[in-house]
Nucleic acid binder design. Sequence first.
DNA 1: TGCAATTAGTCGGACCTCGCCACTAATTGG
DNA 2: CCAATTAGTGGCGAGGTCCGACTAATTGCA
Lengths: 235, 235
Amino acid sequence: MTPARPASGPSRRVPGQPDATADVAILAAEPEGLSLLLVPARTTASARGGRWELPWTPLRPKAPLVAQARRTAAEALGVAPAWLEQVGAFDKGRHPSDSALSIAFLGLAPERREGTAAGRQARWFPAEALPPLAPRQREMVGGALALLRERLDVTPVAFHLLPEVFTLSQLQEVYELVLGHSLHKASFRRALQAASLVRPLAQWRTEGRGRPAQLYRYAPRKRRGIRRGVRFDIT
Amino acid sequence: MTPARPASGPSRRVPGQPDATADVAILAAEPEGLSLLLVPARTTASARGGRWELPWTPLRPKAPLVAQARRTAAEALGVAPAWLEQVGAFDKGRHPSDSALSIAFLGLAPERREGTAAGRQARWFPAEALPPLAPRQREMVGGALALLRERLDVTPVAFHLLPEVFTLSQLQEVYELVLGHSLHKASFRRALQAASLVRPLAQWRTEGRGRPAQLYRYAPRKRRGIRRGVRFDIT
DNA sequence: TGCAATTAGTCGGACCTCGCCACTAATTGG
DNA sequence: CCAATTAGTGGCGAGGTCCGACTAATTGCA
């Protein structure tokens, strides 16, 4: 599948170490939709100029996998991601490094940050209008988005896509963005109330016109011992 | 973390190829509980005799990852697994191969098979009483079990833990086994009915004493366009 | 032969949840 | 002072869930 690879370049191999990479799909929520952080392609040979790729680094077996992924994400984002979770191993399709194996991670940015660190001109792209990517990285983006949707109701990922303090409308917006369809306000708040996941603050914020919204903070209160029945949501 | 490794043995490295393994946790459902398929340890040096391990093979980058996992599973099980899904990449803890990285897979056996193929004396162990395993493999087993639970209501994994033809009591038993708690019979059947996932056959089977049970087959009928609200089941 | 035990399968009521409409509340901009 | 806009709540009806109680069909045994 992968052609003969050059002996040098950013993906040079050290014998005895895995021929693999750690790739991070860093997502952020914005009013217009989810956006993904990409960095300029470090291509040596083919297809130069104007190409983008997921932040990635060759795998070094001495360092723990998550630690390396966290570093890779922080390097592109400028700060540590608010959430980091493994998506899985991908081996199909071409990777910018021509490596045989890539471990994908999902990273969440608490807020959009225009300025990114360390000479890297990272840029945000809307998740629905991404520039051309290496096939394997496109697969990884899809996997990261699927994982985000899957984790939405079982982990506090939505809260890590928001600043520490937020309004319930903002929270609902994030849920609608990730799920891909709109929700009913009253139902959303009733369910949120029942889960007792947020703590209201004694602060209000006025966002342009309209009634000011109360601010909340993520604060899971009690253990939920509910025993739900089975669900058959099989595709 | 990994000490200096010997230059020979089952995990000999070929330069330019990933120093990684594919491991498969093959599960089967039995009346007493879930059971896991293990093979005798192929240890060269330390800790010989009576040790067991998950079936694994060193990663060969030419072959697709799933294909290799499927072969690894089939070799230990004697037949191809009824379901195979990637769990993820693991790098913490020691692996029998001393490799730096392992990709774990979840495999499902349709029925318990005592006879396994090709000179390998594989054995089934109850998932709650496993023999000592390498730390990384123990992690992988935990990950596979968690994935199974997670996928239960979103993929037809339960049906792949049963023979083609089964009774509803058997199906409920599988659900209870995987979920870890009992379910109400009427509710279970009502939900199953609503999902229209099974087709009743014109056959009945009498299992010892008691009324004979009707036999069913997995046959997902219609597309489900239901639009569920949000759920906050955050841990 | 008949009765207890056992397993399969269903019925119906109490209760809860969800989707939705309609309403109130508080602010901005004319 | 009023329209527009956004925040937030109440309540109702449909449907789903939990659960006990019931019927159905078979085996084992007295």
